[in-house]
């Protein structure tokens, strides 16, 4: 019962025909800011992003959902306990190459912005505790990570700014609203720029 590659091809063709239908019938395309970042599959068994970063101006931000769970070390952690601080939520997995590549950057940024009232929280998805703990130790990550094997935390963000790839990084301002997002591997500048604006009250 293998996957039929042709079915994928056929769907693409159908999708293409659909575009034609939209054109002929005058169906208005109404993709928002998020649809523009829709990732494509890379064929490597997870959806990886291209490093696109978005910054949302104050006033156009959506409230982050109340998420909580247990961390890799077994403690309870709730996002609401960080209210009043800027929070960076990073969705990662130890098996994911872009996550491994961005880990040193996140470790550095989390320490640099600690004094500016920024807290980092990881969300470990599609991973095993043994591998995740080895990853955290290996990269010297000091901030906690929620263990989310069923991806319930990503699901909780579905009505806001969903993490659309692995890794994805969200920046939540002091009022608990989502101020920025990076889809795919973060760089020092992409996340740093968002953090500089948000910590400056932007």
């Amino acid at each position: 019962m293998p996957l039929f590659p042709s079915s994928h091809a056929a769907r693409r063709a159908v999708g293409a025909a659909a575009m034609a239908v939209a054109g002929v019938l005058g169906v208005a395309a109404c993709g928002g800011q998020i649809a523009a970042n829709t990732p494509a599959s890379n064929g490597n068994n997870f959806v990886s992003g291209n490093g696109t970063s978005s910054y949302f101006k104050a006033g156009s931000r959506l409230a982050a959902p109340a998420v909580s769970g247990s961390t890799l070390s077994g403690a309870r952690l709730s996002l609401s306990s960080y209210r009043g601080k800027v929070v960076v939520i990073n969705f990662w997995g130890s098996w994911c190459a872009p996550c491994r590549s961005e880990a040193p950057t996140l470790a550095v940024l989390s320490e640099q912005y600690q004094s500016k009232g920024v807290r980092f929280v990881g969300v470990d998805i599609r991973d095993s505790p043994a591998s995740a703990r080895a990853f955290v130790q290996n990269f010297g990550i000091s901030y906690p990570s929620l263990n989310d094997p069923a991806d319930e935390i990503a699901l909780a963000f579905r009505h806001t700014v969903p993490p659309a790839a692995i890794p994805s990084t969200l920046v939540i301002d002091r009022n608990g609203q989502i101020a920025g997002r990076v889809i795919g591997q973060t760089s020092y500048s992409s996340l740093g720029n968002i953090l500089a604006k948000v910590t400056a009250g932007g």
């Binding site: 994928h8 769907r11 693409r12 999708g15 659909a18 575009m19 939209a22 395309a29 109404c30 993709g31 928002g32 998020i34 649809a35 829709t38 990732p39 494509a40 599959s41 064929g43 068994n45 997870f46 959806v47 969705f91 998805i125 599609r126 069923a150 991806d151 319930e152 990503a154 699901l155 579905r158 009505h159 969903p162 993490p163 659309a164 790839a165 692995i166 994805s168």
Partner: peptide
């Protein structure tokens, strides 16, 4: 969960957003 981060491959329609 049926969310983009938790799928191996994802082929959305032209007007489908992850939400």
């Amino acid at each position: 969960a049926d969310t983009v981060t938790d799928l191996d491959a994802y082929h959305p329609g032209h007007l489908v957003s992850p939400n």
